[in-house]
Write a protein that binds this DNA or RNA. Sequence first.
RNA 1: GCGCCUGUAGCUCAGUUGGACAGAGCGUCGGACUUCUAAUCCGAGGGUCGCAGGUUCGAUUCCUGCCAGGCGCACCA
Length: 569
Amino acid sequence: MTMETTDRLTDGVRTALRAAGLPDVADCIWEVPRQAEHGDYASNVAMTLAKPARRAPRQIADLIVAHFPPLPEVARLEIAGPGFINVFLSPAWTASAVRGILAAGDAYGQGERERGTRLRLEFVSANPTGPLVIVNARAAAIGDSVARLLRAQGARVTAEYYVNDAGNQFEALARSFEARLREAVGLPFTFPENGYPGEYVAELARDYLTGHRLSTPAEVDTHLTSLGADPQAALVRLGRWAVRRIVDGQRRVLAEYGVEFDAWTSEQADVREAGLPERAIDELTKRGVIHEQDGALWFRSTDFGDDKDRVLRKSDGELTYFAVDVAFYHFTKFGAADRVVTLLGPDHHGYVGRIRAAMRALGHPPEALDVLIVQLVTLLRDGTPVRMSKRRGEFVLMEELLEEVGRDAARFTFLTRRHDSPLEFDLAVATRQSTDNPVYYVQYAHARIRSIWKQIAEQGIAVPPWSEVDLTRLSLPEEQQIIKRLLGYPEVVAAAAHALEAHRIAYWLQELAGLFHPYYRAHRVIQDDRALMSARLALCTAVGQVIKNALGLLGVSAPDSMTRSEADA
RNA sequence: GCGCCUGUAGCUCAGUUGGACAGAGCGUCGGACUUCUAAUCCGAGGGUCGCAGGUUCGAUUCCUGCCAGGCGCACCA
């Protein structure tokens, strides 16, 4: 793997600093200036050194430039403004860099910043009480892309889905399910007050009856009493059946979406029945941060930055959800990982403080836990919000979204917003197969490049191996600009992974496509000047490769051709 | 009342962990198809970066206050 250009520039600066007898810097920020006159890279290192070196920024910049070692990629250095060092790359070197991109292929853009990190990434984790809805699709798109980004940086990522198959919500589902079973055959029933009224529970009940060959009230009555020694045990068995079916449905939709999880952790089986909450309480007790009050067991989370102390075991003897979560985070997550990332909905953000407090109390470094809040999605149909009411069981399902807009458009659209920002998802726009829809703009660039190759093959044109192609023919300003863009890609991936922000890739892709399309229209690749053709072909192939790699990080396909459907033709 | 998030072009949003005249897409207006796919391209117009202070050589970015919107503040999950 060749070193990044910016790393080599940083080495150059440090060499110059040593030679000039100036203090060293740990790192050196290289940014790509907005304006071409400011060069290809610019650094403010001279300004940051002004204080420790007790010299004027421009004077330091002069010394750095004077002592900078010759590098093949650097054409010249300039000092500008208050002390910026502007780097101008050599066009010949830039052009030759295309070869490196082509050689790296699918691996281009991967890095080592998270090499060896064991990372546990939890996302979606919808309650197993109903099908996935649109906000889950957003979390799935973001979480899966963050997982891909981190893997591209060498992290060993476990994508985890936590199934809350215990507690009040589980019980409400089980009671709803039982009521629907009785209702289906005409037995008397009372629908639970906090139950799940959605039609899917009734559907599930009908499936259950069919599967168990039950049709008459008498059969159902006998069956229900045969399920367990007491009504509670029977209810639990019914509930488990319903949860299994619902979770299977969630898993299926996620798989269609291209999202696979490595771990499906069950609150009931993997945390509660494994006795982890009790062990967590023991550990906290040993650390002296537990006290009893009013018959309940409290964790003194205020000692660790929380607003108020939190109950772990209620006065009725039951564990709180928090106690279970502390165990889940401490044993299951941190037991198998150095770093933990969780995506949560905005309704849970008040919860983050106490989990952080508990992890600090248990000795986990605060920076090892990241919580990303994924904001809500407002669904629009032709500009007007689609009303959703969970209480009435009315919401837009994730599978309906997939059916209507497709996997690529859905995922890409979710990744055009920062996770922290509320999202308006306009179905009309996401469905439209046109310019409005950035995913097609990017995919089209890839398809156009593949199409050039198709032409090459059809016309029987021979293309020499890249090692024999004279890349210095790539001298147009547009070509230089595109190559420099491609060279910045690994840094964008690294930064996106570090910030846990997949949307940066989506924006970067749109900008790359925005450079490619005008170039493609203005300059022909296939032409009589075969040397120039080969050089341009190398560039286009590199662009296609990087688009494919970047779309891969978003879980979006890179098609060889675009076929517009009749409706929008 | 307390806490978190958000406030950037008509709309939806970026803004590279404090940098050099503030960006994109859509929408509006005007143009370009005998060409490797026009799902494309070219051009024009559009802004007191919510408001007011502060830190800094330098602030859309950091700090404080205020205004507006969203969400959360259980011995619920």
